[in-house]
Amino acid sequence: MLEIKNLSASIGDKEILRGVNLVVPDGEIHAIMGPNGAGKSTLSYVLSGREGYEVTGGSAFYNGQDLLAMEPEERATAGVFLAFQYPVELPGVGNANFIRTALNSVRRARGEAELDAVAFLKLARSAIKSLSMPDDMLKRNVNVGFSGGEKKRNEVLQMALLQPGFAILDETDSGLDIDALKIVADGVNALRGAKFSALVITHYQRLLDHIVPDYVHVLAAGKIVRSGGPELALELEARGYAGLEAA
């Protein structure tokens, strides 16, 4: 379970998050929507531990562990996964090698045996197949020369293989055509279960047609200003964010 209490954070002198409160129990998927600059990406970076964000107050616990006191890799091995809005290119680093190294770091932390290259490839190929992705995904260098859609699919592939307990999808739908959107949604839906929870950050209702959330929250000016069921997303789609800050 993820529990965020009164979380405030700033970049330099600029306060971005101003007391976010949010609980995501295991087994649930929550969507966060909101206008540009509301702090959606900041929230995902603060939860995953990126440098350059100063937490000025509040707390964030995942399964009782104080996330804010942990290194990014410790959060990852504890089961937190961030699907990047802009996945990073790693020239010369093979995708299979990268994901295997990551998976083995996670497995080590969980006290599981590491996978050798053969066992990993078998696992990765079956994941690729079930996500309807091309085989060469593993052979190419991490995100180098990938189209926007391929980069996002690569994030979903990593998520499928790392099997996180809690995933943050930071605008994973942006720049995707409808087919790619379905692949991404299928990836998330495949992980759904009693021990998986996710925070889906998006601008658009259309992703939520494919990943149906349990709750929708609206983040505006660094705070959650409204929460509701999936129907809230439809309402926002129809009426926009205007006037929400006051609500």
């Binding site: 350059g52 290194e71 990014p72 990852a76 996964f81 790693l90 990268f98 770091s105 932390a109």
Partner: peptide, 17 residues
Amino acid sequence: AEDQLFYCRSRGLSEED
């Protein structure tokens, strides 16, 4: 780049790795 390091670390790799 800082973002390359963070990307790797967010996947569970230590800074050294």
